[in-house]
Nucleic acid binder design. Sequence first.
DNA 1: CTCGGTGCAAAGAGTTTGCAATCCG
DNA 2: CGGATTGCAAACTCTTTGCACCGAG
Lengths: 152, 152
Amino acid sequence: MGRGNCHGQENWHGKFHGFGCRMTAGREAVITVLQGTKDHLSADEIFIKARRINPDVGLTTVYRTLERLSEMGEVHSLDSGDKRARFELANNEKGHHHHLVCTKCNRMIDYDDFIDDEVKLLQESEKKLSKKYDFTINSHLIQFYGICDNCK
Amino acid sequence: MGRGNCHGQENWHGKFHGFGCRMTAGREAVITVLQGTKDHLSADEIFIKARRINPDVGLTTVYRTLERLSEMGEVHSLDSGDKRARFELANNEKGHHHHLVCTKCNRMIDYDDFIDDEVKLLQESEKKLSKKYDFTINSHLIQFYGICDNCK
DNA sequence: CTCGGTGCAAAGAGTTTGCAATCCG
DNA sequence: CGGATTGCAAACTCTTTGCACCGAG
């Protein structure tokens, strides 16, 4: 009995409803795509894949869905260095992780080694910074930039 | 005009030369702007300010200069969440710092509190990650996302 | 039935590129 | 002098918007 399968645990219908939004076929397709990949897809790539699930989905809907999900904190938008945004589910089966970003080919590599220490330290910083700057922190990002093995 | 006197220490002429590039009036204006601000400026904002120093500078030159400087590792390009890139000198008088990014107004706040511990930890991660992923790390980024005091 | 959601086409905005003229070294 | 650099305008690409129709609840 695998855990974390989409339709079981994740009540997307309810999540959307909580934000005064409705669940639709287009949104479901986008979410299914995000759940089914371990890559960091662009809006366009999500669109292509979503269309294979539901040919009626339009690119506009993909953009609008991703924006909603970002506002809801369910999706993170990432900057890989090429000029288009890339997206990943905030709570995916990959678990919490950070990124290595190649400045040559813009590839993003996930890593979750050693991040326990990183996260622990960040939580302390978070607490202090929140207070000092009167800033409500919702999430964090750690990325290392350099040249990946392929590009050397 | 005394060229090359970009604040004594920094030998930009030499830096460019090391990359097979030349020092020009346009590039000097861009660098002077970057050195003279503590904000995270967009290409367009840099262009406006650079034009006040040298009215002959074009937006294209600003973009091309920023790209060269990025390649040279002298400038970092930042993603503030609005769709344009923002830039800061890699080695500026602000010293090493990280960012708080407001997801509502896209303001970026620098902080350098507590970062000694952060940097120390990152250097360890860096070493291990470099080896494990055969990835040459040149720089890192830490950002906290949330809501700033103005936006609450 | 009521709004929120959708697709399409067109607009918008930031960034890049082609090219002839210009400037650095 | 020779190749790097520049400004301008046009081209490009990603993203957003206006609008009439559709559909979830």
